[in-house]
């Protein structure tokens, strides 16, 4: 359980505090203590931004964040909507207070915040809340749709972009679109200077404190986002983001990311191959082509057969929406 809370004055101090926590833990456990390697430090040091324990990104999502915390973990904290909810009995499952991080490093006020159009693309501070994304005139339609899919207004007022990426849950609102856009992230820690690397790479091996998300310029491409959920303000049961250059009914350089069918949202090269460079067929045919490629487990949110059918319909809807979607700036 949480024993200590600190609020560093800047990112450098935040990183230093995390390194100290890791070194302290390593000294007692004999493990490595470098900030760059999530796999070796149990995840806690790799928290990306704010609302979540970043280690989750490497060890399997929310359900396993307790695992990071039980080894004397520290966690970066900004919004707190995801991290603190893990203490709730219905979210915690079999985890106990002892599984919660002992040290919380509050980076909520030091993370960059806001959206800026730059030569590199649209830069979104990791500390930007979902509501701020939604309200920004710089947010294009698909980005707005992704941001709107985050729970409800109360949550959007606190949940941060960095936290959503770092937690990287299967239902993460922003991850599919960001991956489809080939986004990059800027991080502090793991080296003497801030480093920029592809989001896809960072999600596989989170490194340091996530500072900014960079969405590259559209280059004439269009983007669409779709989700399914049980009720409107529910977590997403499936998410789809698609980016392509649209010529009539033809999709070129299609990039498709699907969430809800694996531990994390994944780019689906197999589905892309069905449609890239071709005219999109009608919904029924599109859906029928996709269905065999989706696999899912039976659980309380539905049977595998149901999820595959609903997912195929969702992907087909998203591709269809792409035909008339806004061309990205």
């Amino acid at each position: 359980m949480v024993k200590e809370y600190v609020r560093p004055k800047d990112a450098a101090e935040a990183v230093a505090l995390m390194e100290q926590a890791l070194a302290k833990r390593a000294a007692t456990s004999g493990g490595a203590a470098t900030i760059g390697g999530a796999a070796t430090i149990g995840g806690a040091a790799t928290i990306g931004g704010a609302a979540t324990i970043g280690g989750a990104a490497t060890i399997g999502g929310a359900a396993t964040i307790g695992g990071a915390a039980t080894i004397g973990g520290a966690a970066w904290l900004a919004g707190g909507t995801a991290l603190l909810s893990t203490a709730s009995p219905s979210v915690a499952g079999n985890r106990t207070a002892a599984d919660f991080p002992e040290l919380l490093i509050d980076v909520g006020r030091i993370l960059p915040r806001g959206l800026n159009q730059t030569a590199a693309g649209l830069v979104i501070g990791a500390g930007t809340t979902f509501q701020e994304v939604l309200e920004s005139p710089l947010a294009f339609s698909a980005l707005q749709a992704s941001a709107r899919s985050m729970a409800n207004r109360n949550i959007r007022n606190r949940a941060t972009v960095g936290g959503n990426l770092a937690f990287n849950k299967s239902c993460a609102s922003l991850v599919p679109l960001c991956l489809a856009l080939d986004a990059a992230v800027e991080c502090a820690g793991g080296g003497p200077a801030n480093q920029t690397l592809p989001l896809a790479k960072w999600l596989i091996k989170p490194a340091g404190l996530l500072l900014n998300l960079i969405l590259p310029a559209g280059g004439g491409r269009s983007a669409a986002f779709a989700r399914s959920s049980r009720t409107a303000c529910d977590v997403s049961t499936a998410t789809v983001a698609a980016v392509a250059t649209v010529k009539g009914r033809r999709l070129l350089e299609l990039c498709l990311v699907v969430g809800g069918f694996s531990l994390h949202a994944l780019r689906r090269l197999d589905i892309e191959a069905l449609f890239d460079g071709r005219d999109l067929d009608d919904l029924a045919a599109t859906e029928a082509a996709i269905r065999p490629l989706l696999s899912a487990i039976d659980d309380q949110r539905g049977s595998s057969a149901f999820k595959r059918q609903q997912g195929a319909a969702l992907v087909a809807d998203c591709l269809q929406a792409l035909l008339s979607a806004e061309v990205l700036p």
Partner: peptide
Amino acid sequence: GRLVNSCQLLALQ
């Protein structure tokens, strides 16, 4: 000025 859930907010924050 923003509506937030106080159950997901540490008092120290």
